[in-house]
Write a protein that binds this DNA or RNA. Structure first.
Length: 867
RNA sequence: GCCCGGGUGGCGAAAUGGCAGACGCAAGGGACUUAAAAUCCCUUGACCGAAAGGUCGUGCGGGUUCGACUCCCGCCCCGGGCACCA
């Protein structure tokens, strides 16, 4: 029978709540070290918690509980990223305020998180939709605005007429997949100048303790490239191109302008004008996606004009092609087909000349060679390396006024407005005489108006445009009439700074108290999904740097250490395929859409039980029909697939501690791993064994084996081995092996006739970060009155780890032949002697010359023999 | 195409260059029980062998080393991200 987790867990949750066990004082003892451990806060969706949430949350909770026991002041908060499109969609459908559904969803999430026993300081709970929170989000925007980092711009946006909403680029695919249409439309937008921070956002990555892959993704996103801008003369006009390879100027055989380039119409010759105009029109109607997706085949049109290459006065033809982007660099390039893949494809297709100017290493074809080499056919520069050439030619361009060294970034400014209701209103007014005016700080927050209809206006104005009374305001500068801004901020806004508000969540005079900020920041451990690798983490870093420049925060980076948890997939599924005739079809004959590759027939997927399967090679086949291979895969959890695991169900059946422990035991935190219901049962059995160490299962009284006797050497050793392993593994967040060490301890402990309290109590302490309810309960049953949350963490002693004798494996020529048992203090010579004596080893030495005797202390003997 | 991860028993996994497979699951056998559940004990990488023991084995092919899952070189497969950024 299972231990009564259903009584124990709610009781301790109530205890922690009543006693405010995990309250972090507003004025902590600053003599102690601090530890700020943060989860990426969730969007409280209507679906409630899924098993992916507790994975990261348990990982941080273990660390938080451990650090408290190590004497740290710990800040471990939780809150809600509660603006979001689903609530708005719901409001449009029902006419209810989005706040209603949002509050309901938050209540569900809060209940579910409390049910899992996380040690959050719930007094610091915040939601981005709280008006007090919105106030400071707006305040930060004002600082950004005042620093000239926000501007209005007409920008093409993704407008969905079905949703009546504008979507972010990264949201387009998601909603298209759900069947909504999305089109391009130009709208007035607010944009933030994140590009002004590109260099700092790039440079400061170096000092962060983040996964290298995430840093690399951010670097690629920022996309710094160094090169030069060079002027080419076309008639009386100068056209500037950007190149990272000014050393290939002598190889430029044509030039390409982006279709949007303003000079295109002007330079096109009358004979080419029609073709050029047609091409531009075609390019304009394509979406970004179409332009890039059809990238395989290059298109373009000759303008009829020629440009003059400044290095050799050669006349080169000017083309228009959409493989040159208007948004990057100058929207114009010099094409060097010999040494650029795209130019090479284009030149090949349109039969343009290809001139070699870089000599690649021996044996490499120069056509399409894009690496560094030695300059050729470049006049006086011949013989220079790529690096030297770049430097010299850039200097020459600058001297002669024909160009300049230049750094470009892929990063674009951040489209920051949304045409939605459920977001933070911009604290801005449009005054007829003064233009755009900021709302004075003492009038914040600008609240959302009460509305009946949350849809945008039919002409695409944001929903707030319907609130005609709300829009009317007085200009704080001239006192004249003004209209409120009707755009709202994107969901990112609230998540850009929430980690600061946790530090001082009820401060009504400042975003955060500077002394508290200085004490707690930066975040020491930030855990969340890799899906936020670029956007959230880049935006938050940007806002943080602006606040740093404003003097609001004391450190240039918000998140010192970052860990991404791996996704939890559904249970492993074995799928076989059947055709209409009912015959099985082997997996290699099935294409990605479930069709028979040979006949094109649609096949029926059939789920198989593992009892029907056997391993063959690196896959599985049917036991009854070994020529039929099946597909073995774990899939992402999704409603449509029906493989979603609900944490509520697990807690009901096995308890919160079992769920926590299982998710940590599955494998390394950062790895993708499939769920296994049997695995949950396994850790539940372990928790039962722990319970039975202390409590007699029949009587529910304390176990008769508990004793006040002195522990044996063996018992001390078992305990201290566990303490050492668990301590080290928690520091490294290698929780799966920590749990394994505790299992080994319990497996051993349950064989003992007597269990000293001095052994079981420290064990409960090291178990407590993982299974806090059970640990508290047993700690309490052993007679301790108070929570164990602040008990000092047990310390292992090396002397207890020592064994009197140790076993040493003996190899001959690197192959294991025998084992010897020696006193652990034995000298090398004694050990070698014992190894040579070893009965299993001797046959392998007989009659052979021993050339070398290798001894690795405490580990291994290897005897190298000749022949 | 480019950039990251990853590939070890039937499955999840473990292993500072030093006994590959700890721990858990599953499977098989046994104890307890009228019986079942629960619990406990034993076996369990593959192959040869009655056993002792031996051979092979960490995606594939090479290399370094007394010794390689681990380090180096070249590939293959799977997952994720980016994708005409000059």
């Amino acid at each position: 029978m299972a231990y009564p987790f259903f009584e124990i867990e709610p009781r301790w949750q109530a205890f922690w709540e009543e006693n405010k066990t995990f309250r972090t004082p507003d004025e902590p003892d600053v003599e102690r070290p601090k530890f700020y451990v943060l989860d990426m806060f969730p969007y409280p969706s209507a679906q409630g918690l899924h098993v992916g949430h507790p994975e990261g949350y348990t990982a941080t909770d273990i660390l938080a509980r451990y650090k408290r026991m190590r004497g740290f002041n710990v800040l471990h908060p939780m809150g809600w990223d509660s603006f979001g499109l689903p609530a708005e969609q719901f409001a449009i459908k029902t006419g209810n305020h989005p706040r209603e559904i949002t509050d309901e969803n938050i209540a569900t999430f809060r209940r579910q998180l409390k049910m899992l026993g996380f040690s959050y300081d719930w007094d610091r709970e915040i939601a981005t939709t709280d008006e007090e929170y919105v106030r400071w989000t707006q305040w930060i925007f004002l600082q950004i605005f005042k620093r000239g980092l926000a501007y209005e711009s007409d920008m093409p946006v993704n407008w969905s007429p079905d949703l009546c909403a504008v979507l972010a680029n990264e949201e387009v695919e998601e909603w298209r997949a759900k069947g909504y249409t999305v089109e391009r439309r130009s709208m007035r937008q607010w944009v933030l100048k994140i590009t002004e921070y590109a260099e700092r956002l790039l440079a400061d990555l170096d000092g962060l303790d983040w996964p290298e892959s995430i840093k690399e993704m951010q670097r690629n996103w920022i996309g710094k490239s160094e090169g030069a801008e060079v002027d080419f003369q076309i008639g009386e006009d100068k056209v500037r191109v950007f190149t990272t390879r000014p050393d290939t100027l002598f190889g430029a055989t044509y030039m390409v302008l982006a279709p949007e380039h303003p000079l295109v119409d002007k330079i096109a010759t009358p004979e080419q004008a029609e073709a050029v105009a047609a091409y531009r029109a075609a390019a304009a109607s394509k979406s970004d996606l179409e332009r890039t997706e059809l990238a395989k085949d290059k298109t373009g049109v000759f303008t009829g004009a020629y440009a003059v290459n400044p290095v050799n006065q050669e006349r080169i033809p000017v083309w228009v092609a959409d493989y040159v982007l208007w948004g990057y660099g100058t929207g114009a390039i010099m094409a060097v087909p010999a040494h650029d893949t795209r130019d090479f494809e284009f030149a090949t297709k349109f039969d343009l000349p290809i001139i070699q100017v870089v000599e690649p290493p021996e044996g490499v074809d120069w056509r399409g060679y894009v690496g560094d080499g030695i300059a050729v056919h470049s006049g006086e520069y011949d013989g220079l390396t790529t690096a030297e050439f770049k430097q010299k030619i850039t200097a020459w361009l600058e001297e002669t006024g024909q160009g300049v060294g230049k750094v470009n970034y892929k990063l674009r400014d951040w489209l920051f407005s949304r045409q939605r209701f459920w977001g933070e209103p911009f604290p801005l007014l449009h005054c007829e005489t003064c233009g755009v005016v900021t709302v004075p700080e003492d009038q914040l927050p600008v609240r959302l108006p009460a509305m009946q209809d949350y849809r945008p206006t039919p002409d695409g104005q944001p929903p707030l445009a319907r609130a005609t009374e709300w829009r009317k305001a007085k200009c704080p500068q001239c006192g004249g009439p003004a209209l409120r801004e009707t755009n709202t901020m994107p969901q990112w806004a609230g998540s850009c700074w929430y980690y600061l508000r946790y530090i001082d969540p009820r401060n009504s005079t400042a975003l955060v108290d500077p002394a508290k900020e200085k004490y707690w920041m930066p975040v020491d451990m930030y855990v969340g999904g890799a899906e936020h690798a670029v956007l959230h983490l880049l935006y938050a870093r940007f806002w943080h740097k602006v606040l740093y420049d404003c003097g609001v925060v004391s450190h240039p980076e918000p998140f010192q250490k970052l860990v991404n948890q791996g996704m939890i997939l559904g249970e492993m599924e074995y799928t076989a395929y059947r055709n209409a005739a009912g015959e099985f079809v082997s997996a290699e004959q099935v294409d990605d859409n479930g069709m028979d590759k040979r006949t094109g027939e649609k096949l029926m997927p059939v789920k198989m039980a593992d009892a029907d399967l056997q391993k063959q090679g690196d896959g599985f086949v049917l036991k009854k029909q070994a020529d039929i291979r099946v597909v073995a895969r774990a899939h992402k959890m999704s409603k449509s697939r029906g493989n979603v695991i609900n944490p509520d169900d697990i807690v009901k059946e096995y308890g919160a501690d079992a769920l926590r422990l299982y998710e940590m035991f599955m494998g390394p935190l950062t790895q993708v791993k499939p769920w296994s219901m049997k695995g949950v049962e396994g850790v539940a059995r372990f928790l039962n064994r722990v319970y039975r160490l202390v409590v007699d299962e029949e009587t529910r009284a304390l176990s008769a084996k508990l004793s006040d006797a002195e522990p044996t050497r063996e018992q001390l050793r078992a305990l201290h081995v566990a303490i050492k392993k668990v301590t080290g593994d928690i520091e490294k967040m290698e929780y799966n092996t920590a749990i394994s060490a505790m299992m080994i301890f319990v497996n051993e402990a349950q064989t003992w006739d007597a269990l000293p309290r001095t052994i079981v109590e420290p064990f409960l302490l090291i178990l407590s970060p993982f299974a806090p309810h059970l640990a508290e309960e047993l700690w309490n049953r052993l007679g301790n009155e108070d929570t164990l949350a602040y008990e000092p963490w047990p310390v292992w002693k090396e002397e207890f780890l020592q064994e009197e004798t140790i076993e040493i494996p003996v190899q001959v020529n690197g192959r294991l032949r025998g084992r010897i048992r020696v006193p652990s203090a034995a000298a090398e010579s004694e050990i070698i002697a014992a190894a040579l004596e070893c009965a299993e080893v001797q046959p392998h030495l007989a009659g052979k010359e021993i050339k070398k005797k290798i001894y690795i202390p405490q580990r291994m003997v290897n005897l190298v023999v000749a022949g």
